[in-house]
Design a protein around this nucleic acid. Sequence first.
RNA 1: GCCUUGGUGGCGGAAUUGGUAGACGCGCUGGAUUCAAAAUCCAGUUCUUUCGGGAGUGUGGGUUCGAUUCCCACCCAAGGUACCA
Length: 941
Amino acid sequence: MQFENERITMNYNFREIEAKWQKFWAENQTFKARNNSEQPKFYVLDMFPYPSGAGLHVGHPLGYIASDIYARYKRHKGFNVLHPMGYDSFGLPAEQYAIQTGQHPAITTEANIKRYREQLDQLGFSFDWSREVRTSDPKYYKWTQWVFIQLFNSWYNKDSNKAEDITDLISVFEKEGNTNVQAVCDDDTPQFSAEDWAGFSDRTKQEILLKYRLTYLADTEVNWCPALGTVLANDEIVNGVSERGGHPVIRKKMTQWSMRITAYAQRLLDGLDTIDWPQPLKDSQTNWIGRSEGAHVEFNVQGSDHKIAVFTTRPDTIFGASFMTLAPEHELVAKITSPEQKAEVEAYVEVTAKRSERDRMADVKTISGVFTGAYAEHPFTKDPVPVWIGDYVLASYGTGAVMAVPCGDQRDYDFAKHFNIPIPNIFEGVDISEEAFADKANTIIANSDFLNGLNFRQATRKVVDELEKIGQGQGKINYRLRDAVFSRQRYWGEPFPVYYVDGMPQMIADEHLPLELPEVEKYLPTETGEPPLGNATHWAWDTQSNTVVANELIDDQTVFPLELNTMPGWAGSSQYFNRYMDPGNDNAIYSEEAIGYWQDVDLYIGGSEHATGHLLYSRFWQKFLFDKGIAPKDEYAKKLINQGMITGTSAFVYKDMDSNKVYSKGLIEGKNTIPIHADVSLVNASDELDIEAFKEWQPDYKDSEFVLEDGKYIVGREIEKMSKSKYNVVNPDHICEEFGADSLRLYEMFLGPLEQSKPWNTAGITGVHSFLKKLWKLYGTVSDTEANAENLKTLHKTIKKVEEDIENFSFNTSVSTFMICVNELTAQKCTSKSILEPLAILVSPYAPHIAEELWERLGHTESIAAAAFPKFDERHLVESSKEYPISFNGKMKFTLELPLDMGKDEIEKAVMAHEKTKAQLNGREPKRVIVVPGRIVNIVG
RNA sequence: GCCUUGGUGGCGGAAUUGGUAGACGCGCUGGAUUCAAAAUCCAGUUCUUUCGGGAGUGUGGGUUCGAUUCCCACCCAAGGUACCA
């Protein structure tokens, strides 16, 4: 039987088809995931977006398309797939907009989300929208606040190496004080006994407990950005200025909430070995955590009780220490400086204080420093060691002081050379007349008393033992990672569930959450410099009614002031992946059943810019939730892929500086021109500018003379980040309108490897679009004719390749494979349903709309989404002969078709007998003939 | 400086264990169709050439019958990070 589908012979009407199936999926909830199933689970997660006012550009959906293909593929493979989406909807831009316009950020955010949803929907993603979360929704941030409270009520026990209840710690204090407690806590935590504890006031007890809690209030040096009126985390600062807006940042002491992420430094490091994440990302996190192994050493200061503590990674070189250097800000500087040196030291300290952190970082070459006049005492030789200050030592790392070993460290070496300080050589057979010798692996210690003859490892162990014996040091592991400041002086963020009694923070009880963000008149800081929440008139906690009440009612008896800071951007994103498992749950962050079923994320796709922010913080929260038995896994994402950035192809016109002329690209040589960005929508595929449209767009050029080449104005091109200010943004809406979502999806994948960054060029989309038209045409006639061997070979080769490609995230090569397949089947005039049916399933993860339509037209009534992935059958690819490449000295000259079952000797005989071989050899006798059956023949000589 | 990733036609890129370099697509050239255009279809397209060939995957070496693939040294680009003691 053969039938011709009338409508399928019509043109490929992608607009109608795509609208139809998007509606179908929404109405039938085709992609709703169940929280229990006989099928194996698979969780595919995208990094949820911040819904910005600019909407999506073509770069944004890249990762979503890839994850959608994977999610759809896994459904075809019989998995129960969780593929959710939501919005990271607290954030700065909506608040900045509110400051400018007075519009409530919630309104802006809602409008932006609506627009995002439209844009996402038109791309045909298989998200389970019933699970949508928004971080700014009180029903959601209730649980962000809840996690904060759990952190507040926990401390880190180094003995068990996990977070435990603060109540357990209190019982220990009551029983035996803190002398035996191995905890991660503040450095200034005092030692006390059980009796001491019993005698402490309630306030003192609270103060001490704050030194242990995993989130705590402390005076910290923070990065303050005056222009934004808020503190910023280290990862929010790029090159010394704010990541958003590029404003200067200064150091300032403020009382802030902090997260004791340093407690997890080692586990965050160790965990990296257990997860399949990209190496560069792991390296970023490893560097950020910055573990260094060494020793803590204390030097007594001669003639005083002061001790200078240093951290060194080279305790083995201690006998080479010929001076010490303190950071100019070091607290001992004022205390130990001799009267004679006082003036000079103070002048130096003042000069460095004036230099910004940026200047100091930029200027690494200039060596500066001052002698304090004080001497420390070498722990072993008891020799005096001069103490200097120098700005190459940073107050914020280690102890802010170093023991300088000029023969083993280049910076110490340069400093010593500059100030004529002796450079004793403590290495065997090493010349240090030109530079320091920092090679640990080849170190043999000399001139070092009991360390002589030892290598780095032996000497380190020995010296640490000796230091411990004399009580002047011990082995230590130092981390670069700092505790994370968790307070922001913003309006549009999660309020802390905290009120203050007598200045001490108190948590609002779980059952009264969420504490909702109050209304304010103005979104700016108050006149007294308090955060925006200081403008709220209803922002006090009534402990009787457990509600928010008017500020006038504050009596510090039953009504107390609430916290005015809000949480940072990463709060809401640190547990959203778990919340998706049970997003509607109002009684728990998620049910045990839900997390018991879904466990963790199987595939997480997102940008690498979150390496040391979100991706580190969320791992920390997960480990904490794991310690508390709230999450079953201590790493939440087994595999992570960073999609590359899609860059823009900016266009330039060249304005002559000396005249009113604007020159075409080919004419600028030797002229004094400056490039001006032109909007990419005004340029065609051949780089030709629409001059009239350009003049209309930039009226400043209305009267300019455009100098053409060959009658055309040709623009210059450059690859840059896609951004509004560079006029190189390409909007997916226009692409969908002109070519359809399936074309856009295919094209984004076709562009190149997922993880690689690559430039966008709209011109190329016609290739994949005409592929879809060819695919459509292929289904114009469908018959029950049995497939022939050729058809089956084409199909099965495609099945094999596409399946391998998806498993390897090599989506670009699948698109080529589809093109080859359709070209071949078209050439074969294939009409067999038994070929076209599985082909539709293969295509469906990539181009789901057209696949659904073709599937329906093949007679199916159910969505293609649940159809089983075609099974690859090796038998269809079996060949009987092979086109052998015949090469001479490794260069292929011609091919020769020979049966595959032919033996080595026969092949050689056949090849040598061939006339082309004789022609190549031209009478020479070959030295050697290499025959690899099934692969190649190579004739040497 | 250090760490990571990468370097292949005019462009995006392909080549799974060392075995026909440039698949697939864009662009370009020529042709068919058309009053014309769009669309579609066909052919060609790494460079070079005296039309026999010759060269060719950032550069220079090496291993091999054979190297885009493995090894060594270097150059360049992108991203991360930085007086980290």
